[in-house]
């Protein structure tokens, strides 16, 4: 177990990065020197001025503290939306692949329709209609990104249902739902897990993109929101937007490495002779 992680550099960095992010999120109040919601007297301070490591914005909020607290938002969005997407994809794809026949045909067409939809515009539409609380954003990202997970799970289920142990379970008298949850999903879920992890980075990007367009939750500190606020000051106070952008890049990279590394480890065929 540990050896596989150490051998795959991508997975190693991904896991170390994830631990780092989790520590930052959990210890945010300890690490951050100020309350990020505190509107102080130091407005638009430069880097290091008045003890503000990364300066302040127009409201006098400490940028460093905001970035640290923004980690919580990003991780929450990543985990919850990817979880929704993973569960939906797993169930829908599993049912399609294992039940087959007409059910499969109907669900596959449904998946194709969803894949054709321009996701980001769908999200924009839903946010515009139902409001922009952070939970809306999470749910919406979740229910628009499940089709890729469903396709993976369906392919797994299609091959698993021909395996002897599934036929043996049928002959043993297990019901179709029992087989789906006991044999098909547990044995075919690994590619979905890897894909979901990559999906987490996309979720972070989508949330940042929404915030950047001004459709994020204004009551919560998020990196996208910071870039949105900072873009007006880009020439005079570049630090407001820049460091939030760097934080997004780092976090997305970590989740990408994690997902790709998991993919390598779980599909040994693909990682052969591919040094990273």
């Amino acid at each position: 177990m540990i050896r596989t992680i150490v051998n795959d550099k991508q997975l190693l960095f991904g896991i170390l990065g994830l631990i780092f992010l989790l520590l930052v999120a959990v210890l945010a109040p300890v690490i951050a020197p100020e309350d990020p919601y505190y509107y102080g007297p130091d407005v638009l301070n430069k880097l290091g001025e008045n003890g503000h490591l990364l300066g302040t914005n127009k409201m006098g909020q400490d940028i460093f503290s905001m970035i640290i607290h923004g980690t919580r938002t990003s991780l929450k969005v990543a985990v919850i939306s990817a979880f929704i997407s993973g569960i939906l994809g797993m169930l829908i794809g599993g049912v399609a692949g294992y039940f087959g026949g007409q059910v499969d045909r109907a669900i596959s067409e449904f998946i194709n329709i969803f894949m054709m939809l321009p996701t980001f515009f769908l999200i924009l539409l839903i946010i515009a209609l139902f409001g922009n609380s952070i939970y809306n954003v999470m749910v919406v990202i979740g229910i628009t990104t499940w089709p890729s997970n469903a396709k993976l799970m369906r392919a797994q289920a299609l091959s698993l249902r021909e395996r002897t142990f599934v036929k043996a379970a049928t002959a043993m008298g297990e019901s179709r739902l029992q087989i789906l949850f006991k044999y098909i999903i547990p044995n075919g879920v690994f590619p979905v897990i890897a894909n979901t992890t990559v999906g987490m980075s996309n979720a972070i990007l989508t949330e940042a993109g929404l915030s950047f367009l001004g459709l994020g939750d204004p009551n919560i500190i998020s990196w996208g929101q910071m870039i949105y606020d900072g873009k007006a000051y880009l020439t005079s106070a570049w630090w407001i937007a820049t460091f939030a952008g760097i934080a997004i890049v780092i976090t997305v990279t970590i989740f990408y490495l994690l997902g790709d590394g998991l993919n390598h480890v779980m599909n040994p065929k693909r990682s052969k002779g591919k040094g990273v």
Binding site: R163, T164, F165, K167, A168, A171, M172, G173, Y183, N187
Partner: peptide
């Protein structure tokens, strides 16, 4: 019915999850 009729498969390596 499943109790009445049972089948043993050719490939033992793939007969169990």
């Amino acid at each position: 019915f499943r109790r009445l009729v049972q089948i043993v498969f050719q490939n033992p390596y793939d007969s169990f999850t």
